[in-house]
């Protein structure tokens, strides 16, 4: 018996758009999730019946339109498969909103820092920081100008806005961390730092803020299976204690995270990921 027959629901894509050659943005009809979603939360997506469950951050959600928006870096088989989807196509399974939302409060001056695909998640978070009355200082970065995503959206919710590129094609020539270091050196008042992006970026940021005792929140992306606290695939070490990224996170105190363990754990299926990708590319 086809298992698909045992399921009534499928989720329709209303809009598909390439943000860069390797980043897909999908707006998907999911009225109940859209109604409940909050900044910082994620969803589990299974593109097809044979697919794997992967966590993707929500880049936006609209209770009015009944849609959520996800953005994914097309890096492995599953995300590349998502990259082929068009408006009208359907995804097999969508679960959310999962994880704890970003803790919102009027902290004062909030410096939010995003890199690469992390910028997609950064947008709803900084929007929410601003709605909570914070002075939002946003630093965004990518390898080059063409890979900057959500630039305009983030700009509209920024009180101060900085762009960095590794190759200098736009804004500051260098890393997002350079801008933060400069702010700290200039004694700028910073009440909270929020960082989302590559693990190495978040680690660097946390190392910069730690000696200055600046509270730093990072949003982690461990490998998940169910995403609801059942399996522990996503366990991360926080101040020496095991926590689950999916239910205790995805946001944690950046000064308490064992980033090296996270890096190692996220590499554990690399050989299989390569097999899966090769098979898919061969079949295409």
């Amino acid at each position: 018996m086809a298992e698909g027959r045992m399921r009534a629901k499928m989720y329709e894509i209303v809009k598909a758009e390439k943000l860069t050659p390797d980043v897909i943005k999908l707006e998907i009809k999911a009225p109940q999730i859209a109604k409940k979603a909050k900044a910082g939360q994620f969803i589990m997506v299974t593109p097809t019946e044979h697919g794997e469950r992967i966590p993707l951050t929500m880049a936006d959600f609209s209770p009015e339109k009944g849609t959520i928006t996800i953005a994914a870096l097309e890096i492995g088989k599953t995300t590349k498969e998502l990259g082929t989807l068009k408006a009208g196509d359907k995804v097999f399974s969508l679960v959310g909103p999962l994880g704890l939302p970003t803790h919102l409060h009027n902290f004062g001056n909030v410096v939010s820092i995003g890199g690469g695909i992390g910028l997609a998640l950064m947008y709803p978070v900084v929007r929410a920081f601003r709605q909570s009355g914070n002075h939002t200082i946003n630093i965004i970065g990518a390898k080059n100008e063409k890979l900057l995503i959500y630039e305009d959206e983030i700009k509209t919710v920024s009180d101060e806005f900085y762009v960095c590129t590794d190759d200098g094609s736009k804004g500051h020539h260098g890393f997002v961390s350079d801008v933060l270091k400069k702010m700290i050196a200039e004694n700028k008042k910073i009440d909270l730092v929020y960082a989302v992006g590559p693990i190495i970026m978040m680690k660097v940021i946390a190392n910069i803020t730690k000696p200055h005792n600046i509270k730093t929140i990072v949003s982690l992306n461990p490998i998940m299976v169910d995403g609801t606290g059942m399996c522990g695939s996503c366990r991360v070490i926080i101040s020496g204690e095991t926590k689950f990224g999916c239910v205790d996170g995805p946001e944690f105190d950046g000064h308490a995270v064992d980033f090296d363990n996270l890096t190692a754990r996220n590499r554990r299926y690399m050989p299989e990921e390569a097999v899966s990708l090769k098979k898919w590319q061969g079949a295409k």
Binding site: E52, D226, M230, G232, Y269, P271, E272, E273, V275, S276
Partner: peptide, 26 residues
């Protein structure tokens, strides 16, 4: 890993049929 992760990968996600199914197990 927890028994739950191992069994969920294999049973629910059918990792025993990898790469026909996308979820890996080793």
């Amino acid at each position: 890993m927890s028994a739950n992760e191992f069994l969920t990968r294999v049973n629910l996600m059918k990792a025993f049929k990898f790469p026909e199914y996308d979820t890996p197990i080793r």
